[in-house]
Amino acid sequence: MKPPAFEYLAPVSLEAAVAALSNEDAKVLAGGQSLVPMMNFRLLAPSLLVDISRIPDLAYITEDGDGLRIGAMTRHHAVEMSDVVRQRFPVLHAAMAHVAHLAIRNRGTIGGSLCHGDPAAEWPGLVLLLNAQLKTTKRTIPAGDFYHGALATDLADDEILIEIQFPGLAPGTGWGFEEMARRSGDFALAAVAATICLSDDRATEVRIVVIGAHATPLRLTAAEGLLTDHVSIGAAADAAMQEISPDSDLHASADYRRHLVGVLTKRALAAAWKRAA
């Protein structure tokens, strides 16, 4: 398996990278952990690769008020090992264990995963769950507007994602992240992530996102609306199963994925409820 021929450019400024992307069939090379295998399989044959890894100052995790700003070239492993991520967004820390394997997490970038837009990948769902803003070379895009479909984003051909901005979570927010994959490190058959805020044992703010069981990561708003008290977790999980349109493939049937989303929603909500204060 060998990739097709391409031109290679390693700019050291965003301006030069953006200018290079105006070439037809140019593609950004970030960590390369999705792009290179796709090229090795010859599923993709870009004429020019623009390697943005030599552009300084695109990899960082910075506190911003209660929230965090994370540079697009930050590697998954840096997020996994970050103390401030663990303190402020434990759900991000927990989810990183599901992103492929150590060597892939060392090299793969958050920005690359988001822009590749695999609906079964963790990051697209996590930015939606945490209501993040995606800052590019042109504008700032709310996570909810970023995906048009599987592997399809709102980015223009000459637009580069540079930073992900996570607003702080309300104090006492509980979280859950539940994923099922056939093997450790595989893409999710389905995953459900949730955050819950409680007041007097009643849910006041609920966010539920499903990964891998729809063309894009999806907020399950009907299920969110049904979750009022601890007893309603079952009803919310039932609603979650009806809100998605999963596909059948080699790994799982649509029916199985639907069933899985019900089970994972129940578990994620129960975990989030327990952690909420």
């Binding site: 290679y8 390369g32 295998p37 690769l49 150590l102 060597a103 892939i104 060392n106």
Partner: peptide, 10 residues
């Protein structure tokens, strides 16, 4: 200092 796949790097 970090483990990487050499087949996923040019």
């Amino acid at each position: 200092g970090k483990a990487v796949r050499s087949c996923l790097l040019y």
